[in-house]
């Protein structure tokens, strides 16, 4: 067990190192640098000004020196400093991470919950109108461009009906505490989480439905049916329990993606998350922040995968390879 764990952590570390190096090189391929961006924003510049900025950001050193110093500081769990924002990268990321995690996890729970539920219903009414309806709706949510759907939701629920706040993480300087604050954040969360969740739902609906139909054909289900057990009970106790395994495996893979995958939703709903931080850092060539976001999200995905694998091994000792 310990051996397995060590091997896995070792491999993860190698992947993480490669990600750091490759992204570092990739980002430096982009035209322009932070000094140019800041000069552009200032509306004026002279060579001395730009040279000063480059020296301050450490960009005047050869690329391999910059790479070495970055990799070695990451190895010491130091993600560096954002010269543009005058703050340590880790602080910036930690400020934004909770918002993204909250959004992604809610969307994930919504999509998985609704997806499995709708998929089960569809499977049990195979070929009937309910099945067609569910499959069609799920597909429509998937095929509609996400940002278009998001904009429409804001127009309807926020501007026209005034039911839900249209942007942000919470009411600014409301002074809410405790339960009041939780409810306030929840109200802000509804639209972004559902928009993202309904988009992701389609996959789970389809998979659950297919998987249930597959399991239905197995002998033990037939036996249960022959024994005269109630269909609902069969569905719940025998079919769903077995059909859910591939769904959970897929969900494990998807969950990792959620960390940085909400850029679009964060943009439309002004959600102060890590996806937005990444996008802005990219536009501003804030190298350390951009790399930091990649390193942190990759590390989280790797950790997540590791935990999933461990859980599988504990649950089912037959699984040897990953």
């Amino acid at each position: 067990m310990l051996g397995f764990l060590l091997t896995r952590v070792g491999k993860a570390a190698v992947v993480l190192l490669c990600i750091t190096v490759l992204n570092f090189l990739l980002i430096h391929l982009a035209p322009g640098d932070p000094a140019m961006v800041m000069a552009g924003e200032a509306g004026e510049a002279d060579p001395e000004f730009i040279a000063q900025l480059r020296a301050q950001f450490g960009l005047d050193r050869p690329l391999y020196v910059q790479l070495w110093s970055y990799v070695s500081s990451v190895a010491q769990l130091d993600l560096g400093y954002s010269y543009r924002q005058n703050l340590p990268v880790l602080d910036l990321i930690l400020q934004r991470l909770p918002a993204t995690l909250l959004l992604s996890l809610s969307a994930f729970v919504i999509s998985l919950g609704l997806g499995v539920l709708a998929g089960t219903i569809a499977a049990s009414r195979q070929g009937k109108p309910a099945d067609t309806l569910i499959s069609t709706i799920a597909l429509l949510f998937y095929a509609t461009p996400l940002f278009w759907f998001a904009l429409m939701a804001v127009l309807l629920f926020s501007v026209k009906l005034d039911w839900l706040p249209g942007y942000g993480f919470e009411t600014i300087r409301s002074g809410y505490t405790g339960m009041e604050r939780v409810l306030d954040i929840a109200a802000h969360l509804v639209m972004p989480a559902f928009t993202l969740g309904l988009f992701l739902m389609a996959v789970y609906v389809r998979m659950t439905r297919a998987s249930m139909l597959e399991v239905n054909k197995h002998d033990y289900v037939r036996t249960a049916r022959a024994k005269g057990l109630r269909p609902a009970l069969i569905q719940r106790r025998h079919v769903l329990r077995n059909a859910i395994l591939p769904v959970v495996t897929l969900a494990g893979l998807q969950a990792g993606q959620l960390v940085g995958g909400a850029v679009l939703i964060e943009t439309v709903f002004a959600w102060p998350g890590i996806g937005r931080l990444m996008f802005e850092a990219l536009a501003q060539r804030d190298y350390n922040v951009l790399l930091g976001v990649f390193v942190v999200s990759a590390a989280m995905v790797l950790m997540f995968n590791l935990v999933t694998d461990l859980a599988y091994r504990l649950v089912d000792p037959r699984i040897r390879t990953t």
């Binding site: 491999k11 190698v14 992947v15 490669c18 990600i19 490759l22 992204n23 990739l26 980002i27 391929l29 982009a30 893979l253 990792g256 993606q257 960390v259 940085g260 995958g261 850029v263 679009l264 996806g275 990444m278 996008f279 990219l282 536009a283 951009l290 976001v293 990649f294 999200s297 990759a298 995905v301 790797l302 995968n305």
Partner: peptide
């Protein structure tokens, strides 16, 4: 598989955005 994993742990859309921008 390590190479594949490498591409899978970076959030897909975010990575596409970065690639196009660069």
């Amino acid at each position: 598989m390590r190479v594949t994993e490498f591409f899978q742990v970076i959030p897909t859309f975010a990575f596409a955005v970065v690639l196009v921008a660069i």
